[in-house]
Design a protein around this nucleic acid. Sequence first.
DNA 1: AAATATTAAATTGTTGACAATCTTGGATCA
DNA 2: TGATCCAAGATTGTCAACAATTTAATATTT
Lengths: 227, 227
Amino acid sequence: MSDIDLLALRQSSTLSELVADKMEKLILSGELAAGERINEAVLAKELGVSRGPVREASMLLTSRGLVEFIAFRGAFVRKISRAELLEIYDLRAVLTGQACYLAALKAGGDAGPLNDLHERMEKAADSNKADKYYTLNLKFHECLVDMAGSSRLRTMIDSLVNEMHLYRQVSLRSHPDMAQSNREHRAILDAIIEGDAEKARELGEAHVRAGKKRFEAAGAETLVEDE
Amino acid sequence: MSDIDLLALRQSSTLSELVADKMEKLILSGELAAGERINEAVLAKELGVSRGPVREASMLLTSRGLVEFIAFRGAFVRKISRAELLEIYDLRAVLTGQACYLAALKAGGDAGPLNDLHERMEKAADSNKADKYYTLNLKFHECLVDMAGSSRLRTMIDSLVNEMHLYRQVSLRSHPDMAQSNREHRAILDAIIEGDAEKARELGEAHVRAGKKRFEAAGAETLVEDE
DNA sequence: AAATATTAAATTGTTGACAATCTTGGATCA
DNA sequence: TGATCCAAGATTGTCAACAATTTAATATTT
């Protein structure tokens, strides 16, 4: 585990934020496993800071959906059950719909970097590069939300995406049908360029719901079980 | 400003949480005004605690949408512009729609306390008691979200409702057309009892959008302006 | 006089020590 | 043997002092 000082050169940023960023990486990479308790003293020592910033960072991550606080028992890396994951899909669907709606309103015919991203995903899908597609897919959705121009919406969706990553870590990386997924992206993109906001909403919502179905279908095979 | 010790009898709750609750009241009542900086030392002294809990409470309120942190400058009570308020209405609309959808799925024909609340609102509307209607309306929506049974959805909507209250405090209490608003409640209620989830979503979403329009219409008269 | 640089005051950020609470392991008792 | 109680250890919560940064007030320069 690398020391926090490596990042400390970033200015006008508080130690707590640096620690939070570091912890977010540790959590999303699985080094801090879902359900695990975060020992303030131990982590503080490892990062070379005192307990204060670790505590504050934990609280920051709470609002990002990655950590859960229990009084006098400590901070725990959140654990997402299958039922919760499905619930999150639904919330993400309606919020993504709203993002597409706003993006279509504000785009003014210009899809920005979305076109480029879509093309690169097309290539990744053709050559069956799932990891590449996964990364680009994240960027595509991020870009979509940015175009919507609502920091509130961004925070909410980011939080949901974070939580999704807590479900069995990499399990989401397996993308059953990249070609189909990207066709849906194309349709959203077209609606945004046309400026048809209501259509963009419908397509965005449906796209996430389709993702949910793809996940459910894949999950049925492997028969994973949760509490 | 009353002392924190009055609340301290609550067990298994940390000081930070007590302070957060107290601060939430101070903010929503306007004693801590929107945009104002929260002086940690001053507030800590007033509440009879040290700066630590006040800091942690501020962070808690950040995730509830009531406070904004700026590094080395402190915690500020959030200030919501008219544009943001309208944006929040839209987000609340889609999330309320989702809440109604889930409520209809899980209700199983039983609307719980919603019926009673609706009746009482009817009376309040008839006798033109806006304050009473306002309070019951909050409860109705709260109950709706509870029935949906998603803590995540609850947190998100609560946060948005909190933020709405930061817009000129009481301005939202003026309810232009209680009778119409309550007719919409009735329709939602019926859809939930019928178990028609998709219809409940539509009506719930439309209800909040109608509220937005009612607000915009009222606002047009008074000509309030924002940055 | 206006703009800029400088210094002092106020405020937030961080730390280490101490208090309160929970957890664990062993002793006691039925 | 099993359950319950108690004490010791580990861990979180709170505090007060100190460091870092920002804000303001003042002096300086043009």
